[in-house]
Simulated scan of single mutants.
Amino acid sequence: MPARPPRLTQRREFQRAAARGQKVARPGLVLQALPQPGQALRVGFTVTKKVGNAVVRNRTKRRLREAARLLLGDGRVAGYDLVLIGRDATAGRDFRTLMGDLRGAMKQAGIAIPDRAE
């Protein structure tokens, strides 16, 4: 089972990724990717108050966390700070489609996800 990737926790880390990172929008999420050569992968999650009530926002973040854990939790990707921003469609989107959104956004941002060696 993949482990949880390390997190971005401080506001300034989110702001740095927003200001300097590459932004990629998909129907289910927005990805902000900031290269950090020589560093471990770190992931942050956020959902604005424009998206539903607290229950919907929490569900959205849980779905984003699980998608990131499944796709990035095995340590095959390093050297980036990623911010995943939930959208209105994230909470109700089919999970396979949401995973596809994340894969596509990462590919568009130039982040290679190596195939699993199973």
Rank of each mutant, 00 (worst) to 15 (best):
M1G: 14
P2E: 01
P2Q: 02
P2R: 03
A3L: 13
P5Q: 02
P6D: 08
F14C: 08
Q15N: 12
A17H: 06
A17N: 05
A19S: 14
A19Q: 14
K23H: 13
K23Q: 15
V24N: 01
V24Q: 03
V24Y: 04
R26D: 05
R26H: 08
L29E: 01
L29Y: 00
V30L: 05
L31G: 01
L31V: 15
A33Y: 02
Q36H: 10
Q39Y: 06
Q39A: 15
Q39M: 11
R42G: 03
V43R: 00
V43A: 02
G44T: 07
G44A: 03
T46E: 04
V47F: 05
K50H: 10
V56Y: 00
R57E: 08
R57T: 02
K61G: 08
K61Q: 12
R65E: 11
L71E: 12
G73Y: 04
D74S: 14
D74Y: 07
G75A: 03
R76M: 10
A78N: 13
A78E: 14
Y80H: 15
D81N: 12
L82Y: 01
L82A: 05
L82C: 05
I85K: 07
G86E: 01
G86W: 06
R87V: 11
D88I: 10
D88W: 10
T90H: 11
A91I: 11
R96L: 14
R96F: 12
L98D: 05
L98I: 09
M99K: 15
L102Y: 07
K107G: 06
K107Y: 09
Q108D: 15
A109W: 00
G110W: 06
G110E: 02
I111T: 04
I113D: 00
P114K: 07
D115R: 15
A117N: 13
A117I: 13
